[in-house]
């Protein structure tokens, strides 16, 4: 895949930055003229990935969340959300619908939503070494 444009965003894992993160990625992706639905899906994917950093990776501490958004020459968007937090012991279990190690105000649906809305999702993680979530989604050309 040949990338022709990219943006990098780094911010502390304050929950107030969840909105900033999804809006920033959506703003960058807007150059591909996505539909309202595509943009809503991208915002939701980013929101879930960033919330995982806030709630799980850094728990009650604050660490840095790094997002890289890349656009390819074939209109694919690759979004990488990276933290250096506690990592995931068993990625396959974490991805199961309704699985959560969070409190009862978490639904355990984050990975299910990210998988549903992206064309491709990869998770790289190791305990104590942080997590990278890499999501790809093609924006269909219209008109």
């Amino acid at each position: 895949m040949k990338f022709i444009n990219e943006a990098n965003i780094t911010f502390p894992s304050n929950s107030s930055n969840e909105s900033f993160a999804r809006m920033s990625v959506a703003a960058f992706v807007s150059q591909l003229d996505p539909t309202v639905e595509e943009l809503a899906e991208i915002k939701t994917m980013v929101s879930e990935a960033v919330t995982n950093c806030v709630v799980h990776a850094y728990e009650n501490t604050i660490g840095l969340v790094r997002i890289r958004v890349q656009i390819s020459d074939s209109r694919a968007v690759r979004i990488t959300v990276k933290d250096t937090g506690k990592g995931i012991e068993d990625v396959e279990t974490a991805k199961q619908p309704c699985f959560t190690t969070g409190s009862e105000d978490r639904a355990g649906m984050g990975f299910t939503i990210m998988e549903s809305f992206s064309d491709k999702l990869r998770v790289k993680s190791a305990p104590g070494r942080g997590t990278s979530v890499i999501m790809e989604k093609k924006i269909i050309k219209r008109g």
């Binding site: 939701t44 105000d105 639904a107």
Partner: peptide, 13 residues
């Protein structure tokens, strides 16, 4: 105007 999985947990609760 926007809802993610936090909305699911809110409703279920």
């Amino acid at each position: 105007t926007f809802c993610d999985s936090s909305g699911i947990a809110f409703v279920l609760g």
